[in-house]
């Protein structure tokens, strides 16, 4: 495979986890998969770095290139399984680091506003979301998932967070898509937990269980997404969505929703469905204590 050390492709944004991965692997990565608007590179520990053109969502494990740069990189890459020397091909010196959002109690809106925002989010999700995954009531996937999700809710209401966590794991690998709908749904729940400052008794061992068990239950690309989510790292547009509900108004929610819908085909909708579910689970539980 050709390398081009003198005319590197410019990175616009680099996820914080990418730097860790590159430090560990001496920047030699294998081409895992090539799509029209994404190229996945994988290291020896199964960490994936995703290259995307601009106007796609940044994330902890993504590198955003210019449109021209992405096209150029794609033209260099011949096929899956080639080894790519990242540092020789991509210049990250001028790239902004995507660090993700931090959230604390001072940024939360009042409980009434958050409840209203959740209601508004629910209305636009069911109006505009893609119902091919878990969101629609009639898909075979949502019918399959319905009793599992009902149990999660019941356990949660009863304060049996350990059992709720086990049930959440039952959704891993379910549904259509490169990132299965169940995985997207779980990512949404994890985002809700992070942005609602869910305490450890709620989160339980969920994140550890995901890291340990998801690897065999879903594909490597989706596993990376879940693993990063379990560690508190989410794509930018997913964080924007949660942030707009917790800290914004309906216009912010609209804008964030338009962006999240652009993730995958139904992934944005499934992540949103999981986020809504997670928000509803813990909104009342948490903020009664404020």
């Amino acid at each position: 495979m050709e390398t081009n050390p003198y005319n590197k492709v410019e990175a616009l944004k680099i996820g914080y986890k990418v730097k860790d991965i590159l430090n560990d692997t001496d920047s030699k990565l294998k081409i895992h998969s090539i799509f029209e608007h994404a190229i996945n590179l994988i290291d020896h520990s199964d960490w994936i770095i995703t290259l995307l053109p601009e106007n796609y969502s940044a994330g902890p494990q993504t590198v955003i290139l210019t449109q021209e740069g992405f096209a150029e990189f794609k033209s260099l890459v011949f096929k899956v399984m080639d080894i790519c020397d990242f540092r020789n091909l991509i210049n990250t010196e001028n790239a902004i680091t995507f660090t993700g959002r931090t959230i604390d109690e001072s940024t939360l809106k009042g409980i009434t506003r958050i409840h209203r925002n959740i209601e508004y989010f629910e209305s636009i999700l069911f109006q505009r979301g893609n119902k091919g995954g878990l969101l629609g009531e009639s898909s075979i996937y949502s019918k399959y998932a319905a009793p599992i999700i009902a149990e999660i809710k019941d356990f949660f209401v009863q304060g049996k967070y350990e059992q709720a966590a086990d049930n959440i794991l039952e959704l891993i690998g379910l549904g259509p898509g490169l990132t299965p709908s169940g995985d997207d749904f779980i990512l949404g729940i994890l985002t809700a937990f992070k942005f609602c400052l869910a305490t450890q008794d709620i989160v339980c061992d969920l994140t550890k269980k995901i890291i340990n068990e998801a690897r065999t239950r879903t594909n490597i690309i989706s596993y990376n997404m879940l693993r990063q989510g379990a560690m508190g790292g989410f794509p930018e547009w997913v964080e924007d969505m949660a942030f707009s509900i917790i800290c914004g108004n309906s216009e912010d929610i609209d804008m964030a929703f338009s962006k999240i819908l652009r993730i995958g085909s139904s992934s944005g909708s499934d992540i949103s469905a999981g986020m809504l579910f997670g928000l509803k689970l813990i909104a009342r539980r948490l903020w009664d204590d404020f």
């Binding site: 075979i140 996937y141 399959y144 039952e170 959704l171 891993i172 690998g173 379910l174 549904g175 259509p176 898509g177 490169l178 299965p180 169940g182 065999t216 239950r217 879903t218 594909n219 989706s222």
Partner: peptide
């Protein structure tokens, strides 16, 4: 028609249908 990755859960779903 079902078009999915071969995860355990999707196989379970295929079994169901």
């Amino acid at each position: 028609a079902v078009v999915v990755m071969g995860t355990d859960l999707n196989k379970d779903l295929l079994r169901n249908v």
